[in-house]
């Protein structure tokens, strides 16, 4: 099962290595990872997507929590969250399909952020599924390059992400 973890850490050099090293050492493969500053300059938030059964995840969660620089660990798997990824997709364009690509981008509420005679760069945010879907639709035109951020999440509602 896939799990999305939020790890709140002290903003120290090396903390990313500590957390990712622990995953590797204990046999977990990180599928995606994003690290960002938070509303508090002393802390950063890591959003980590990993695959593993519930017991294994519980164990890794506790091991991560033991790291001195880790303040909190949440597993969002069972929670209602807002989740987003951002992708930039460089798709090949020709005169005859230019409109179709613009329409798809519109439907997905994406933005064309760079235009040249042979390619567009499309910016798209949303859930992983949504980005997968637009990627599928662009594929027949020829995707030259794609870059995706890791997933970021926040709990829904007024409570904090925990």
């Amino acid at each position: 099962m896939r799990h999305t973890l939020s790890v709140l850490v002290s903003n120290h050099p090396g903390v990313l290595t500590r957390v990712s090293g622990l995953f590797a050492r204990r046999g977990f493969n990180i599928e995606s990872l994003s690290v960002n500053s938070t509303e508090n300059p002393d802390t950063s938030r890591m959003t980590i997507v990993v695959e593993g059964d519930v017991a294994a995840l519980e164990q890794i969660r506790k091991q991560i929590h033991k790291l001195v620089e880790v303040i909190k660990v949440y597993d969002h798997t069972e929670e209602s969250v807002v989740e987003r990824e951002l992708a930039l997709i460089k798709v090949s364009v020709e005169t005859r399909n230019r409109n179709e690509i613009m329409q798809i981008t519109d439907i997905f509420r994406g933005k064309i952020v760079d235009v040249s005679d042979k390619a567009f760069v499309v910016e798209i945010t949303g859930s992983e599924d949504k980005i997968n879907a637009i990627e599928q639709l662009f594929r027949p035109f020829g995707i030259k390059e794609i870059v995706r951020t890791g997933k970021i999440v926040l709990a829904r509602g007024s409570k904090n992400t925990e």
Partner: peptide
């Protein structure tokens, strides 16, 4: 040394 020791310490500092 920070990297070498990381997996075998409770914590380490540079």
């Amino acid at each position: 040394v920070t990297g070498i020791m990381m997996p075998i310490v409770k914590h380490n500092f540079l």
